[in-house]
Every structure is written in C-alpha cells, then in structure tokens.
C-alpha cells in the first residue's frame, strides 16, 4: 500500500563508519495504558533520521582526553611569587 509520503528505508539512512546503536527510541509520550512509539521518522526523508543518528553518535562519543593545560613559565628563583 502507498502511504502517501516519501518513505525512509534503513539503507537510505546516512551513517558514519562506526556501527550505529541497535535502537534509538525517541522519548516523550504520556500514555498510561499501552506503550506508544514515535512514527515520524518512518515517514520523513533520510535526512531527519540521519540527523538523529548523528546527534546520538556525538552524544555517545567518549569524551576526548583533556588537553594538557598551558603551563606558566616558572618564576625566577630569586623572585617571590605574587
């Protein structure tokens, strides 16, 4: 059946070389009986899904090691530190 919209397929989701997470489930919703799921990304272009995966990858990237702090030149030995 035609859904009347451009359909994103998994193959059309742009990704980088790192394998994407198994599942990315948008949060939100407030239903106390059954469980709801966002379906927007099933009907939008690959760009929307790709953008979400890129944002998730960035948020999950291990923090880079901190750059060493620039060191002040040591004061001459005969000077009192301020």
């Amino acid at each position: 059946m035609h859904t009347g919209g451009h359909c994103l397929t998994l193959a059309s989701v742009p990704g980088d070389t790192a394998p994407p997470p198994l599942v990315v489930r948008p949060l939100g919703g407030a239903n106390c009986s059954s469980v709801g799921s966002v379906v927007d990304l099933l009907f939008l272009t690959a760009t929307a899904g790709g953008a979400l995966l890129v944002a998730v990858s960035a948020a999950l990237a291990p923090a880079k090691p901190a750059e060493p702090a620039p060191t002040e030149p040591a004061p001459p030995l005969d000077e009192d530190p301020p």
Binding site: T9, L10, S37, L52
Partner: peptide, 9 residues
C-alpha cells in the same frame, strides 16, 4: 527494519 532501529514497540 527502520521501525526496529527507531525503537517502535
């Protein structure tokens, strides 16, 4: 597969 990837339950 896309529904599974985007957490459709």
């Amino acid at each position: 597969a896309l529904a599974e990837r985007f957490g459709v339950f």
